[in-house]
């Protein structure tokens, strides 16, 4: 991506990266990226302002420069910086080559991003001039310098309160997948469906029939006598509509919900019986 005239395979990769980056930003996308705080588990707070366009904006210092105005976007899988902000903050070298589309500079890293009382370090960002940001800046009459996306907020337990215009960030231990590496590889890779087996956390003692045609639930085919399901009062013919407060529109949904219920924990199970909704409590046994 650093060649001015990429060879064909590089062109393809650039196109893939670009497509992935652009599509991945199913929301607003444009944005700079914050970095992560090492060590401390303390909760940090940041105030945001709402743009007339209903976007949240955070004022962030990038590598001690700024402030830059970044849109906080839950739907953006990447953190994005405009070329201007990336150069101004020393995130990329002003002489770094740009690609043919959106002046894309590709991936870089912000050493230090500060927003509110939070300091994030080594935040991966993608540098390009997102057209939507450009238009937004023009309309607002002030620059929007980028988008804060998943690669930032996935590092924290994040709360957003639109009434108080406040966010909080508490560090959690979550490793963020590198989308910009994975996605192009996947697009170009073999088209094999991944397979996953959904294992219930415990033993329930019931067999499922078919899903109801309207997506409302799944019918219970039979219940093993004296099993946890039987003790809870479940009976053949009941339609399971929710297990552990998860909708069960398909047989897979029931298994997915049951996979989250550890043995010995009580889980609410909503059933339709003779047209009436009721909630039973199942405590799965340890077993298989």
């Amino acid at each position: 991506m650093h060649d001015e005239r990429p060879s064909k395979p590089r062109m393809l990769r650039t196109l893939l990266v670009l497509t992935a980056a652009a599509l991945a930003g199913a929301s607003l996308w444009l944005g700079p990226a914050p970095a992560e705080e090492a060590g401390s588990k303390a909760t940090a707070t940041a105030r945001f302002t709402m743009l007339p366009s209903n976007h949240m904006v955070l004022r962030a210092m990038l590598n001690g420069k700024g402030p830059y105005r970044l849109i906080f976007d839950l739907g953006a899988p990447i953190t994005l910086l405009s070329n201007k902000a990336a150069e101004g903050s020393g995130t990329v070298d002003a002489n770094a080559p740009k690609s043919f589309l959106f002046s894309m500079r590709g991936e870089a890293e912000v050493a230090k991003l500060q927003v509110g009382s939070l300091t994030a370090e080594k935040l991966p960002v993608v540098v390009f001039d997102h057209p939507a940001l450009g238009v937004l800046s023009q309309v607002l009459g002030e620059p929007i310098d980028g988008i804060i996306g998943f690669t930032f907020f996935a590092r924290y337990r994040t709360t957003i309160d639109y009434q108080k215009d406040e966010m909080t960030f508490t560090p959690v231990d979550f490793s963020v997948r590198d989308l910009m590496k994975d996605l192009p590889d996947r697009i170009a890779g073999p088209k094999v469906a991944r397979q996953r087996v959904l294992a219930p956390g415990g033993l329930w003692g019931l067999r499922l029939g078919a899903a109801e045609p309207d997506g409302k639930g799944v019918r219970v085919a039979s219940v093993v006598p004296d099993s946890p399901a039987a003790l809870a009062g479940l009976a053949a013919g009941d339609v399971l509509t929710a297990v552990d407060e998860r909708w069960t529109a398909s047989v897979e949904d029931v298994y997915a919900a049951a996979s989250g219920v550890e043995p010995g924990r009580e889980a609410p199970v909503a059933v339709l019986r003779e047209g009436k909704e009721q909630t039973l409590t199942v405590r799965p046994a340890d077993g298989a």
């Binding site: 996947r186 697009i187 088209k191 094999v192 469906a193 991944r194 397979q195 996953r196 087996v197 959904l198 294992a199 219930p200 047989v251 897979e252 298994y255 997915a256 298989a288």
Partner: peptide, 9 residues
Amino acid sequence: QPEEQVAAR
């Protein structure tokens, strides 16, 4: 890319 296939245990 095909969707992930899930199976019941």
